[in-house]
Design a protein around this nucleic acid. Sequence first.
DNA 1: CTGAAAGCGCTTACAG
DNA 2: CTGAAAGCGCTTACAG
Lengths: 335, 335
Amino acid sequence: MASIKDVAHHAGVSVATVSRVLNDHPSVRANTRDRVLTAVADLGYRPNAVARSLRTDQTRTLGLVISDVLNPFFTELARSVEDEARALGYSVVIGNADERPDLQDHHVRTLMDRRIDGLLVSPTDGGSPLMLDAARSGTPMVFVDRWIRGVDVPVVRTDGRGAVRDLVAHLCALGHRRLAIIAGPAATTTGRERVEAFRSALREFGLALPADHIGQGDFQADSGRRMTARFLDLPEPPDVIFAADNLMALGAMDEIRARGLRVPDDVALAAFDDIPWFVHTDPPITAIAQPTGELGRAAVRALIDRVEGRTTDSVILSARLVTRRSCGEPEGSKP
Amino acid sequence: MASIKDVAHHAGVSVATVSRVLNDHPSVRANTRDRVLTAVADLGYRPNAVARSLRTDQTRTLGLVISDVLNPFFTELARSVEDEARALGYSVVIGNADERPDLQDHHVRTLMDRRIDGLLVSPTDGGSPLMLDAARSGTPMVFVDRWIRGVDVPVVRTDGRGAVRDLVAHLCALGHRRLAIIAGPAATTTGRERVEAFRSALREFGLALPADHIGQGDFQADSGRRMTARFLDLPEPPDVIFAADNLMALGAMDEIRARGLRVPDDVALAAFDDIPWFVHTDPPITAIAQPTGELGRAAVRALIDRVEGRTTDSVILSARLVTRRSCGEPEGSKP
DNA sequence: CTGAAAGCGCTTACAG
DNA sequence: CTGAAAGCGCTTACAG
């Protein structure tokens, strides 16, 4: 592969001059510039980004550690992050934590070793020592979707409180009284917040959330299946299962179907996070939709602000309820 | 951030010695080694991967350019690629082409500028000049799923021929006679091969594939919707629509539902690529399943073989038909 | 407007 | 067993 030296030689100038034209430095004579550009084209020269990064101490790369690539919510988030970053002149490298703190740490470490300019994380846990170090190390960082308490890092997330309340109102209006939730890990903010929002909405409607109606999932499909089995084995099973993400809703569907039960007749089902397939499931699934694209874009803007030395605030967007048939006939239909 | 110089100073040795212990060079006295390790721990030192790469001319990173992150097939592929690569000591950086040749080229260029050790690509087109250059440039490369003709690069892919024939047999057994396909871009191998396999299976069963029963899609959802609309507007619409990937099947479902039609009563539907949600759609969707995980792992092994100077062959796995209810009652049920 | 030189943080032959 | 030195491919003050 041709190096800057080859180009310099070919153009009959010094490497400094080649570097200048490559970086659009104004003080290069037009004629010199043309000679260099010709040499670049002739040799098919491409600057070595590794060498440039070492020298300039910047990689123009952002790291993104997501909780689970198999979760369409995160995949859509990753997409919008990459789009916005590219528009602003940055690349992004993604690490998939697969909901495992150890894997998350692995990726944070690898990314920092590569000297990425900034780190976007949706933490799978409450903050490992490594993660805390990273946050304090001076590498610009922003949390997206999930965050860690007690760390001075901006957060870009969705507040699902209102939508969860709307969901509970919807469920009560349909006559449901025994509501259960499959929660995410208590170590994650969204794991905790969604249960809390659910609990306080229930309270508002005069309902309780007994311990055996809280299933401890891990945001992945299998746990949704296991928790659903546990609920359905209860002497008095719940009327409704609310899955705190779409993967656990998938697991719930698997279990319900395996038992030959029907949604919503035997159990109603609702999910946090909306995905295109929810329109086509049997029945279509009521879900809480996040403004995922905007979330990703806002997170990138916040991170790049930090990277480039500007200040940023946290941003909180809001989710909305999308009601479909999985909890019973929607308002306005025949009973 | 501490550098190797700081560690050397702290431990009272030269940077060469520090480098040696970091790289497990045998000729370091145990005592020296311990002193260095202590300094490393004290300073929280992490080697700068950028500097190391510049010096060693290897990044221990693989590039993966996938056609579309929003497609669960590619997302699962990416997952298995990353898993296998990590197990073999490599990182992977993913570029999402979003089915756009220009974006694909952007990522190939960026990845090569970063001097990744090897490139895994599922091309979105028939081979841009840049792609052809890359293949010839000496950077180890392997195609996965899709490939480019006339380029000497190993291919790891699935042969769907047998499964497509099984699908057509299944459809004929159910009495369908007017079969249509929503194909992928003709510039892609899978775009062409799936139509070809479909056409020759039809011929085998004495059926034709008229031009107006071939919809030209682009592997993304919208095109599935548009082509389905076109089929349904035909004076004599097809009995069955076969979508060449799961995203176009989603689009087809959208259109069918928008018209208030039912699957399979009004039109039957089948898809290439199976996803977990196909079990829960209304009705469950008959699909052709690829061994996606194995595909990704085999591709990584092939690429790393090349990177490390070994030779590799192409590998061809096979797909299988998973029949569900979207084409009519399965064999053995009541009619 | 251009070049010679230093230096980014590593690794590795070469000496001793 | 260890160190001094060269060099990977760039960028950028410093001179001229």
